[in-house]
Amino acid sequence: MAILWALVAGLVVGLLAKLVLPGRQPVPLWLTVLLGLMGALVGNALASAFGVRHTDGIDWIRHLLQVGVAAVLISAVTPAYLGRRR
């Protein structure tokens, strides 16, 4: 069940990251989920390092870090993915 939740989290974080990036990112859904999952993991690690992983209520800072890292990953991988397809 944990794998299913990780995939759902990767999908949500990846789609939110694509939403905040300007323009179109023509990467497939599987890559969006993978990069969203990586963004969630790195964002959690950064939140732990900054001491904001567990706060009262919703952990907005942690979620912003997750989406931000995923957005950076998507923007970095998109040109490489497009170059590989040509």
Rank of each mutant, 00 (worst) to 15 (best):
residue 80 A to K: 08
residue 63 H to R: 11
residue 63 H to D: 13
residue 13 V to G: 03
residue 56 D to V: 11
residue 64 L to Y: 10
residue 69 V to I: 03
residue 52 V to C: 09
residue 79 P to Y: 06
residue 52 V to E: 08
residue 57 G to T: 04
residue 64 L to E: 06
residue 35 L to V: 00
residue 55 T to M: 10
residue 46 L to E: 00
residue 68 G to Y: 08
residue 35 L to G: 00
residue 70 A to R: 11
residue 14 G to I: 08
residue 17 A to T: 01
residue 70 A to K: 07
residue 78 T to A: 13
residue 11 L to H: 09
residue 15 L to S: 04
residue 22 P to I: 06
residue 43 G to M: 04
residue 86 R to I: 08
residue 46 L to P: 02
residue 23 G to C: 09
residue 44 N to C: 13
residue 65 L to H: 03
residue 1 M to T: 14
residue 34 L to M: 14
residue 54 H to D: 14
residue 66 Q to K: 09
residue 84 R to F: 13
residue 76 A to S: 12
residue 6 A to F: 05
residue 59 D to G: 07
residue 16 L to S: 04
residue 22 P to F: 11
residue 64 L to G: 12
residue 64 L to K: 03
residue 28 P to G: 13
residue 3 I to L: 14
residue 29 L to C: 03
residue 40 A to D: 08
residue 7 L to T: 04
residue 71 A to M: 12
residue 40 A to F: 10
residue 9 A to F: 09
residue 22 P to T: 06
residue 81 Y to D: 00
residue 73 L to G: 00
residue 3 I to E: 12
residue 59 D to N: 15
residue 73 L to C: 01
residue 54 H to T: 12
residue 33 V to K: 00
residue 28 P to N: 15
residue 35 L to A: 00
residue 17 A to H: 00
residue 51 G to P: 10
residue 18 K to H: 11
residue 18 K to P: 02
residue 77 V to N: 02
residue 53 R to E: 14
residue 17 A to F: 03
residue 57 G to E: 01
residue 19 L to F: 14
residue 72 V to I: 08
residue 26 P to H: 13
residue 80 A to F: 09
residue 41 L to H: 05
residue 44 N to A: 13
residue 69 V to H: 01
residue 40 A to P: 04
residue 47 A to L: 07
residue 53 R to Y: 09
residue 24 R to Y: 05
residue 34 L to G: 08
residue 30 W to H: 13
residue 29 L to A: 05
residue 26 P to E: 15
residue 33 V to C: 03
residue 1 M to A: 15
residue 17 A to Y: 02
residue 68 G to M: 12
residue 84 R to K: 02
residue 75 S to G: 10
residue 78 T to Q: 13
residue 86 R to A: 13
residue 35 L to C: 04
residue 46 L to I: 00
residue 4 L to S: 12
residue 82 L to Q: 14
residue 40 A to N: 07
residue 68 G to A: 05
residue 70 A to L: 12
residue 46 L to G: 02
residue 83 G to L: 14
residue 85 R to Y: 04
residue 37 L to Y: 13
residue 59 D to T: 07
residue 72 V to A: 10
residue 23 G to M: 08
residue 72 V to R: 02
residue 2 A to V: 14
residue 21 L to S: 08
residue 31 L to P: 05
residue 77 V to C: 09
residue 3 I to H: 08
residue 49 A to P: 03
residue 83 G to I: 08
residue 84 R to T: 02
residue 77 V to L: 10
residue 60 W to I: 09
residue 46 L to D: 03
residue 13 V to Q: 05
residue 60 W to H: 10
residue 20 V to F: 09
residue 72 V to M: 01
residue 54 H to R: 05
residue 72 V to E: 02
residue 45 A to P: 01
residue 4 L to A: 15
residue 28 P to D: 15
residue 63 H to S: 10
residue 69 V to L: 00
residue 10 G to I: 04
residue 11 L to F: 15
residue 47 A to Y: 08
residue 64 L to D: 06
residue 15 L to K: 14
residue 62 R to Q: 14
residue 40 A to Y: 08
residue 73 L to M: 00
residue 19 L to T: 10
residue 37 L to P: 02
residue 27 V to C: 01
residue 25 Q to C: 12
residue 41 L to G: 08
residue 77 V to P: 02
residue 41 L to W: 11
residue 59 D to V: 07
residue 21 L to R: 11
residue 23 G to I: 08
residue 24 R to A: 12
residue 6 A to I: 13
residue 13 V to E: 01
residue 9 A to T: 15
residue 57 G to D: 01
residue 18 K to R: 15
residue 48 S to G: 07
residue 86 R to F: 04
residue 6 A to H: 04
residue 29 L to V: 10
residue 65 L to T: 04
